[in-house]
Design a protein around this nucleic acid. Structure first.
Lengths: 239, 239
DNA sequence: ACCTGAACACCGTTCAAGT
DNA sequence: ACCTGAACACCGTTCAAGT
């Protein structure tokens, strides 16, 4: 059978038999999810789109993944593998701490929608745990008591995640900060004297500069603030 | 016509003519939205559900509201009207600052889904501006330079919002912190010595206690950290 | 055991048609 | 000017039916 004739019906290879396409697999699902998220943003990570990318139907994914929530947690942890952790214990701890947090921020910021995802998911996969372990080490080097370091690591990662989420949002909608600045410019001195006076300062500075300043605020505050007494009641910690 | 007979067909009042139901109106739409959000959580605030609550179709809302995004911003600001701001300038500023932030946290925390909404919306409505103005005053009392107060107010509200979002999330899913604690308990001392050692401290303390401690960390850090030089480049601020 | 299509119960937004 | 129903292009999840 000479099959050079272009008009002859092409032999339709069953989609299932194409060796190029990896068979369905938890790994492949997570990889496709992260890929879609990176390329299309928050709305790209849906079970239906992941399924389409893998040449199947959404229902088929449920064999490998319990729900969209679980897939999101897996995608987040896979992305967090890219966070650069300090290899050796060299140089000032503050610099290394800055570097880890900046890397974390960047990983979240580079994938639109990933930060929002991190806000609603506790990262306890292998990558998340590695970051946690590294941060605990750095906070120990900083001189924090172990129990304080435990609370501090939460504070510091929550801050970085929130900043990434806020900024990713602005970017995804296109408005960087312009509309806010315009609102602030319209604020009357009579009703809101402080906002009026500070209207420029409120939106000043680059995201990067403000983030690193905030990290220093956190570090300096942590060094200056002891844990509250482990009293049974919920009292205000002593200043 | 004696209409006491219960079997007589009730006179069906045209839905449009019932005086009990307020006519469509931006105010009514926002009120219905906040009501749904409060009672049903994040998934309660949808254009279709608001429309059903107001006895109309989703399309009708577009006369009064540009999009779901705009409705969300309006609902957020209306909810923020409940935040308690200090009436007079009495008592230590730190206590009043704690009180404002705790009230803000509570308002967000009491309406499931509102915190997540606040994470993706800049609150520049009347209520949001009133809170901003009050916080700027308190940070001025604390002794911060005006420009520092401008950045600080952002840092402090972002933190409170993020904490509310994180905790609302846990509550909405039912798992308070148990699953995380179980994961941490399974962490090996060999691979993650610090996480293993601190597995109890990482999840210890009440949300309230941790929040107030974190606020003090922020305040103390702000008092100890000057703004970076307004250099053109994005340098790390001096510690 | 794995995969599938169809169905269910939802979304935001648009638009032609009515009053 | 305001309201409406229907349509469009999506969702996550379930389930009976196939192999």
């Amino acid at each position: 059978v000479s099959s050079k004739n272009p008009f002859e019906p092409r032999e339709v290879v069953g989609r299932r038999n194409r060796p190029a396409k990896a068979p369905l697999d938890r790994e492949a699902i997570v990889a496709a999810g992260l890929d879609l998220l990176t390329r299309e943003g928050a709305s790209g990570l849906s079970l239906r789109k992941v399924a389409t990318a893998l040449d199947t139907g959404a229902a088929s994914l449920y064999v490998y993944v319990e729900s969209l929530d679980e897939l999101e947690a897996l995608v987040l942890d896979r992305a967090l593998a890219d966070v650069a952790l300090p290899a050796r214990r060299r140089g000032p701890w503050r610099q290394r701490l800055h570097a880890v947090l900046r890397s974390y921020l960047e990983v979240l910021y580079q994938r639109p929608g990933l930060a929002a995802l991190a806000m609603r998911t506790v990262a306890v996969g292998p990558s998340g745990l590695a970051i946690l372990e590294a941060l605990l080490g750095l906070l120990d080097e900083a001189g924090l008591a172990p129990a304080a370091a435990a609370w501090a690591v939460d504070l510091v990662t929550l801050h970085a995640t929130a900043v990434a989420a806020e900024q990713s949002n602005w970017r995804e909608r296109g408005d960087v900060l312009g509309p806010v600045a315009r609102v602030l410019d319209g604020i009357s001195h009579e009703t809101h004297p402080r906002i009026h006076a500070l209207r420029a300062d409120l939106v000043s500075g680059s995201g990067q500069g403000r983030f690193l300043w905030a990290v220093d605020v956190l570090i300096n505050g942590l060094l200056a603030t002891p844990l509250p007494e482990p009293d049974a009641s919920d009292e205000v910690p002593a200043p």
